[in-house]
Every structure is written in C-alpha cells, then in structure tokens.
Design a protein around this nucleic acid. Sequence first.
DNA 1: GCAGGCAGTATACGACTGTCTACTTCCCTG
DNA 2: CAGGGAAGTAGACAGTCGTATACTGCCTGC
Lengths: 210, 210
Amino acid sequence: MNALTGGKLKLIQAALRLITETRSLTSLGLRELAREAGLNPNTFYRHFKSLDEFGLQVLGYIAEEMKAGVRDLRQMADSSEQASRDTVAFVYHYFLANPAATTVAVRELHGPSPILRRALESQLEASAREMAEDIIERQLVSAVPPETIHEISRMTIRYILFRAMDYIEKPAQRETIQTETEHFINRQFRGAMLDHLSQTEVERLALRQS
Amino acid sequence: MNALTGGKLKLIQAALRLITETRSLTSLGLRELAREAGLNPNTFYRHFKSLDEFGLQVLGYIAEEMKAGVRDLRQMADSSEQASRDTVAFVYHYFLANPAATTVAVRELHGPSPILRRALESQLEASAREMAEDIIERQLVSAVPPETIHEISRMTIRYILFRAMDYIEKPAQRETIQTETEHFINRQFRGAMLDHLSQTEVERLALRQS
DNA sequence: GCAGGCAGTATACGACTGTCTACTTCCCTG
DNA sequence: CAGGGAAGTAGACAGTCGTATACTGCCTGC
C-alpha cells in the first residue's frame, strides 16, 4: 500500500527540509540530497531516474499532503456560516503547519523548470475548480454567474499562495495578512455582483448609505 | 555619468539573457556568466565582490529600466479617461518588451535568496505606493478611503506581476489575461466601495438592476 | 534452502565550480 | 613622455557535481 520505501521517503523529506531554508527544488543536487538524508549518493538512482523525475515525485508527495488538508477543510466549512472568514483562517493555519510544501509550491510555480511549473499550475487549477464548485453548490454568492466564480476562485487561490510565504515568515503580519485576504475575497465577489452596472451607478449606490 | 563600464554591463546583460531561458538569478555561476559574456571568468571579480552583490546590482539595473517605464506610463495615463483599461494594456505591453527583467522579478520575489527578496519587495512596495498616490491625487475612486486604495494597489501590483509571466509565455492567452486583470481591478475597487454594507444589503443592491 | 531481485555502499572518472596569485594590456593623467 | 591604476587574461588550486561500474546485504518466492 505505502509506495514509499525508506530511502525514497528519506530523500523527499530531505528535499523539503533543504527547501524550507534557502534552497529551491530545482537547484538541489543529488549528492546534497543524499547527504541530508544520510544516504549514499548513488542510492538516489535506485529510486529516481533523474532530478527532473525527482522533482515531479516531490510535487506528487506534497500534492497528496495538500489534498488531505483540503478534505479536512471542506468538512469543516460545511458546518460554518461565515464561510470566507473561517476558510481563510483554516487555510493559513494549514500552510503554517506545512511550511516546506508551501515553500516548494510558491517557489516552483514561477521557477526555472517548465515541467514543474506546468505540473503545479494544473494542481492549482484543480484546487480552484474545487473551490468554485463548492461555492456554487452551496449557493454562497448566487448573484454571480458560475464562470465568474471560477475566475475569482483562480485569483484567490493564487493570492493566498503568494501571501502564504509572508504568513509563514513574518509572524507579526499574520493578522494583517488574514484580514487583507478576507477583504480580497469579499471585495472580489461584491464587485462581481455589480459587474453589470456602470461606474456612475456604482458610485451612486455606494454613497447612498454612507 | 554612466557607471557601467563595458565588462560590467556585458556581465549583467549576459545574466538577463540566461535567466530568460530556464535559469534563475540565484542559480547563475560566475564562470557561466563570463562565458556567456565572452569574458575571462576572473573579470567578474574586477566588478563584483560576490555573486550576492552581483544579484543586487542586476536588480538595481532592472529597477532603473522599470522606473523609466513607469515614467512613460504616468505621462500617458494623464491623458486618458478610462485609466484602468489603458494602464493595464500599457503595463503588459511593457512587460512583453522587457521579458528578462520581468522574469527576474517574478522568479526572485519568492526565490531562495532572502536578500534579493527583501530588495524586490521594497521595490514593489514603492511602485504600489506610487500607484496609490496617483489614484488618490486624480480622485479616480473618491468613494474609497486612502488606506484601502494603498491596500488594493499592493494587491494589484503583485497580481499583474504574476500574470506577466503567463502573458509573456502564452501569446494565446494575452487577451484573456488583460481582461481578467481589468476585472480584478474594477471588482476590487467596486467591492471596496461597499465595504461598509452588510452582505444582505449588497445582494439587494445587486439584484435591483439586473 | 537457495536464487533472484531490490536497497544501499564503495570507489573512481571527468567536468565544472569559486577563488587565488601573477601576468599583460590599455588608457588617463601629470 | 612616463607612470600608475584599472580592465582583462592565464594558469592552477581544492572542492563539488552527476554518473558509471562493481560490490555487499536482505528479503521473498519457489
């Protein structure tokens, strides 16, 4: 069942450990990995054909981790009224608990390897789709057309991922990041509700109840 | 006046050339640079003390480039009514014309070197502040408090930068990216105009003129 | 109980890296 | 015209890298 034998897992975890500090997945060396994992350099070849394949496997590994996190998230969100606030809090908490996976994702999303970039993009795309369908299903913002919800979901996923790095590294800013993310989401959806109105009409509405 | 002597400039431009393909600034080697620049490896030491210092100088170089671009932008925007649309088009056009600088910025913003990250962050912060003050000065969205405008400006600058990579790499998606960016900006500001309203009030407003 | 495959090790090779010292070439200035 | 400093070159150093081949131990199926 568990497809990861000892050495393989050790190497992947070594990679995550190294990346958390000051490295990037693409820049890791085979020997460096083995050293960190406490293994002989050649053991690497027993499990991976090349460093590219290794990178993909690491991505797959953290994708599994993330999926587990998302499952928990959906269970929790179902029992909540103010979905955006709780969801944001939960997601950042999750990132904080998995700094290595988060760092890898952020760093390689725009990193030098096209292969990893594509893999990560489709991963994010899947998460965004899941988020959008969840919102649609639960009719959280019924006044916005489905396509727009998908669009905003994609933006939100990306936005959260970028802020996640700061969230991990700068404890003092965590509250700020959290509330700014809530603002981000709420404003996106509220703004989208007014997509069909002209600039002047929106301004008129905004001033009415100030 | 021009502080860049021949060799120094050659090395920096070599770096930009290499990065555009599949490299990252942090991962460049001294000899690799010299080879690409057609110089002896040791010439590097005549101009830079270390690779870190080199990275900072490259950042400074592209910051100069970007500042020139922003100057042009402000001149142009002053003569325009529909500011967001034209501005977005201009900015992406600019990124397209400077792919190397753009790639460096995106890649190192979350890259492995903390020094470069900090440098880039303050650079972005400055751009965001400039953008926000421009918006306030010209009273483009007078119904939103200044602090919120700054917040949205920061988000927008980051969002555009991220999308810039796709914009450069995927010509087929350029129109989509451009319109999505406009949506992003408009929704943020429109949503912010309704910050003081409750969820149900917003929904009532949204439905009125559908 | 033994054969075969799998995980891990040892050693070695060539290529590449950053850095050092010593040398040459060129331009600018007095 | 002479001299000095800056730019660039040459060669060598120790270290690291990825890779290949050959080896040892262990577990499993027959």
